[in-house]
Structure formats: C-alpha cells, structure tokens
C-alpha cells in the first residue's frame, strides 16, 4: 500500500541516545511488501503526520525504525508506547542494492543517524559470508553517548569496524576525529570496492571526496540523500534535487549522478 497507511503495532520502543529511539513494528493484519535495505517507509503518528523513515531493520514483515525527535511528527513517533499503533506506507525508493556489489570489497561510512539505514545493509552483508570481499564499517558520531546500536557494533566489521566521535569525555578510549580519517585503517582494493555512505550531506561529500582520492570510482560510491518529502509517491514535488525525485530516484544515488547536483547551492 502506498497511498493509505496500514496499521502496525509497536512491539518495542527503546532509547538509543538522549533524542533518538528505536521502535519495532509488526503488522496488525495485512503487511506491506518486504522492504530492501536503503528503502524507506512513511510512518504516521496518529493525527500528527507522517515522515519518511528508512528501515533500520527488516525481519520478515517486522520493521525496525530508528528515529530522532527533531520535529512534531518525529517526536510523536519517539513517544509511541508499546502496544499502540502507527500507520506505515511503503516500501519506497531505491535500496542500497548490495547484491550488485558481490565479490567486491565493501566500505560502509555512517555519520550520526545515518547509521540507521546502513544497519540492514551491514546485516545483509554479514548474513552472506563469502559473497562479498572485505567488510569495512566506519562509524562517526557526535559523542560516545550518541552512538547507535552500541551493543551490536563489535561484530560488524571483517576485517575492520571503526568508531570515531567528534567530541569525547575522559571515559572514551576510542578514536576522536572525522569519520573519513578511519579510512586509513580500512582494508580494501579501491578499484574493486563498493562504498555506501549515509549521514549529514557535508559528511557524505567529504567521505565521497576521500574515497575518490583513494581511487574508488564515483559510480561505485552510493550515497543516501535527504530532502523534504510528503507523499513518497512522486506526486508532491517536494523531494526534487535537480533532475531527481528523491522518493523515486533516491534516496540511494550513485555519486557520479549526485556529485554535480550537490555542488550547486540551494538546488
């Protein structure tokens, strides 16, 4: 269903950080088609509105969403109690399309809440050992307290999973710095690598620039972009980025396509 939301029951709502929560959803009756990693749903908080939220976990018809409360609807969704219901439309948009990277080294670069859409990608890669080359996961966060999925990160990278923060207190023993600095530690053959990046657009551009500098071709760098979105069905016009309708042609876009668009101000 793409026009009218289907009821989903909230089965869990747990904190990830001070302003971010992860909710788990199960269809009440009819389920939406299966989502692919990188795709998004429109999640409706009763009477408040719906917002695009990427899938942070896919388990059959069960969906996981990680939501940061920064607006009226996202705050309402962060506040949903287990047992209540939300509305969900989808699946929408292009996915990461991991299978097309079979046999190649993988670099996953996540910044802040941008880790959420990459989580099912990491899980997809981990669930198919031998299908892909080396898996490198690079995670940047604001502070150690803002890190998502802390309990899961350890098992994620083969050979490398690095975490870095912008600012750290004395309890932090890990890396401090921008996420692109972690590329020094990653193990990959740039000419045979597919990279996936999601986070603030400035971070995405920096990551893509660094990957290009190291020899990863632009068409093998896939980024996930964000713009205002209302319908997700290509009818409302809000999510345009130049020639792209991001609800339809995105959110995952190859960097060779996106690069000339991201350099034009206010496009």
């Amino acid at each position: 269903m793409t026009a009218v939301p289907l009821p989903y029951r909230v089965t869990a709502n747990r904190p990830e950080s001070a302003d971010t929560r992860t909710i788990e959803l199960q269809p009440v009756a009819e389920a939406l088609p299966v989502f692919a990693p990188g795709q998004f749903a429109m999640v409706y908080a009763f009477g408040v509105g719906d917002i695009p939220v990427s899938v942070a976990g896919i388990d059959g018809s069960a969906l996981t969403h990680t939501i940061r409360g920064v607006g009226a609807t996202s705050r309402a969704l962060c506040a949903v109690r287990a047992g209540t219901q939300v509305g969900v439309r989808g699946p929408f948009g292009t996915g990461w399309d991991l299978p097309s990277a079979a046999g190649r080294d993988l670099i996953i670069v996540a910044g802040g809440i941008g880790l959420a859409p990459l989580r099912p990608l990491v899980r997809e890669a981990l669930s198919a050992p031998g299908t892909y080359g080396r898996l490198n996961v690079l995670v940047g966060a604001r502070t150690p307290a803002d890190l998502l999925y802390r309990s899961e990160l350890d098992g994620w990278g083969h050979p490398y999973c690095g975490v870095t923060v912008d600012r750290a207190g004395p309890e932090w023993t890990g890396n401090v710095g921008v996420v692109t600095a972690l590329l020094d530690q990653a193990a990959f053959d740039p000419h045979d690598t597919t990279a996936f990046a999601c986070g603030p657009e400035v971070m995405i551009r920096a990551a893509a620039r660094e990957l290009l500098h190291r020899g990863v071709p632009a068409q093998h760098i896939r980024i996930s972009l964000e713009r205002n979105m209302h319908c997700a069905t290509g009818h409302c016009g809000h999510c345009q980025l130049g020639p792209l309708l991001l609800c339809r042609d995105g959110p995952v876009v190859a960097y060779d396509r996106a690069k000339p668009l991201l350099t034009v101000r206010e496009l």
Partner: peptide, 17 residues
C-alpha cells in the same frame, strides 16, 4: 481528503481511504 483514521480505546487504528 485522502483518508480518514480512527483510534479505538486500545490504541488500534482504522484507516479508511
């Protein structure tokens, strides 16, 4: 109007196109 939704006493949601 695209749809209307009602919320029941136990939080269940009914959506009518």
């Amino acid at each position: 109007r695209q749809w209307a939704a009602d919320r029941g006493p136990d939080g269940e949601m009914t959506v009518r196109p």
